[in-house]
Amino acid sequence: MPRNNANSTSQDELLNEFQALVTDTEKLLQHSASLVGEQAEELREQIRASLGRARSTLHNAEDSLRDRGRAAVQATEGYVQTHPWQTLGVAAAIGLLLGMLITRR
Rank of each mutant, 00 (worst) to 15 (best):
N4V: 15
N5L: 15
A6Y: 01
N7D: 12
S8C: 01
T9H: 06
Q11F: 04
Q11N: 09
E13Y: 04
E13Q: 15
E13L: 11
L15A: 14
N16S: 13
E17N: 12
F18P: 02
F18V: 01
F18L: 05
T23K: 12
T23W: 02
D24R: 14
D24W: 06
T25K: 10
E26A: 06
E26G: 01
K27R: 13
L28P: 03
L29V: 13
L29S: 12
Q30H: 10
H31F: 04
H31P: 00
H31Y: 09
H31Q: 04
S32I: 14
S32M: 11
S34A: 05
S34H: 04
L35Q: 12
V36D: 12
G37N: 04
E38I: 06
E41L: 11
L43S: 10
R44N: 08
R44C: 08
Q46L: 14
I47H: 10
A49M: 07
A49E: 09
A49H: 04
L51M: 14
R53P: 06
A54S: 13
S56T: 14
S56M: 15
S56I: 08
L58F: 14
N60D: 14
E62W: 09
S64C: 12
R66C: 10
R68H: 15
G69C: 05
A72Y: 07
V73T: 08
A75V: 00
A75F: 00
T76L: 15
Y79F: 14
V80G: 03
V80F: 08
Q81S: 14
T82H: 06
P84V: 05
P84G: 10
Q86F: 03
Q86K: 11
T87R: 07
T87I: 01
L88D: 04
A92Q: 13
A93S: 00
I94C: 03
G95H: 03
L97S: 10
L98N: 02
L98C: 08
G99S: 01
M100D: 07
L101R: 04
T103I: 09
T103L: 03
R104Q: 04
